[in-house]
């Protein structure tokens, strides 16, 4: 047994510290919270307002654009119908809204930071170890800071998802920029490109496939996290899974689980196909 007299709890101190932070930076936290909530509500109500068949039609069109294959289009259009048949359509839209909100924020933060990492080596030297450390942490851990600062609800759910899903797009943006062939960069410089022009005209377009692969990964991570974030009140399909687990209702859990998988397949195919469209053309 560990000696009891040695025990030392820092839980209280941490709670106090967080409270102090919350008080001191109330404006910041409230502002952030309302911005995120606003974005989420807008996206959610838009998704709710759109009739289901228009959403499926949009998926089909998108699938056609990225794949040009009837089979792919058919599969990707039929799969979401099952979510509706299970009666989980509104919950799926809730989940999708959180994913979209989180991904939008993750991209707004992640892509510029990825660019900065590639352009300025010291920035990369600081951020890369942080990303590496983040990668080793189990996804549950991301719930804690979100919970600490925003309590239970949708906003912490979105923010935990953002934190969890931003690293891939940062990494792959940086990687894509670093992989631009030196011949192309050299030619651009030789013709008098400024640093900014080099980035805009040559580096970013050539890094596009990699950046979009990052967008794909970020989206998939967001989906995975959203399910977990239901534990702190994000709602959606994840919550349905959680309830089913608690009540040992295998059937209900199965329906919700399949719906999550369907969502994952559709999002993955669409974003991956989109990334492929950006490979340098050969004709």
């Amino acid at each position: 047994m560990f000696p009891e007299t040695w025990q030392f709890n820092i839980a209280n101190h941490i709670n106090n510290f967080v409270n102090w932070l919350l008080d001191t930076f109330a404006v910041f936290f409230d502002g952030l919270s309302s911005v995120v909530l606003n974005l989420l509500m807008n996206i959610h109500s838009a998704l709710d307002a759109i009739p289901w068949w228009i959403i499926i039609l949009t998926i089909a069109l998108f699938a056609w654009f990225v794949s040009r294959s009837i089979v792919t289009v058919t599969i990707l259009a039929i799969l979401p119908v099952f979510i509706g048949l299970f009666g989980l359509w509104p919950l799926a839209m809730e989940t999708l809204a959180i994913i979209l909100t989180a991904v939008v924020i993750a991209l707004i933060i992640g892509i510029p930071i990825g660019v900065l990492m590639a352009e300025f080596k010291p920035i990369e030297a600081i951020i890369r170890p942080i990303l590496d450390a983040m990668q080793t942490m189990p996804s549950f851990v991301y719930l804690i800071p979100a919970l600490m600062f925003f309590g239970l609800g949708k906003v912490p759910g979105v923010l935990a998802t953002v934190i969890y899903s931003t690293p891939p797009v940062m990494r792959l943006t940086c990687l894509g920029l670093n992989q631009v062939p030196s011949e192309v960069e050299e030619a651009a410089l030789a013709y008098g490109a400024t640093r900014w022009q080099l980035l805009k005209e040559a580096r970013l377009p050539l890094a596009m496939p990699s950046i979009l692969a990052g967008v794909n990964q970020t989206t998939m991570m967001a989906l995975a996290m959203v399910v977990i974030a239901s534990m702190i009140g994000a709602g959606g399909l994840g919550y349905e899974v959680l309830i089913s687990i608690n009540r040992v209702n295998v059937g209900r859990g199965f329906e919700a689980g399949i719906s999550v998988v369907i969502l994952a397949i559709v999002i993955d195919r669409l974003t991956q196909g989109f990334a492929k469209r950006f490979e340098p053309p050969t004709t």
Binding site: V184, A187, A190, P281
Partner: peptide, 21 residues
């Protein structure tokens, strides 16, 4: 230097250095 490169001398490369996109 940037101005000079645009104006005074152009380079042609063994591996072309064209923009593939």
């Amino acid at each position: 230097l940037t101005f000079f490169r645009r104006q005074e001398a152009s380079m042609i490369f063994q591996h072309y250095g064209l923009l593939p996109h």
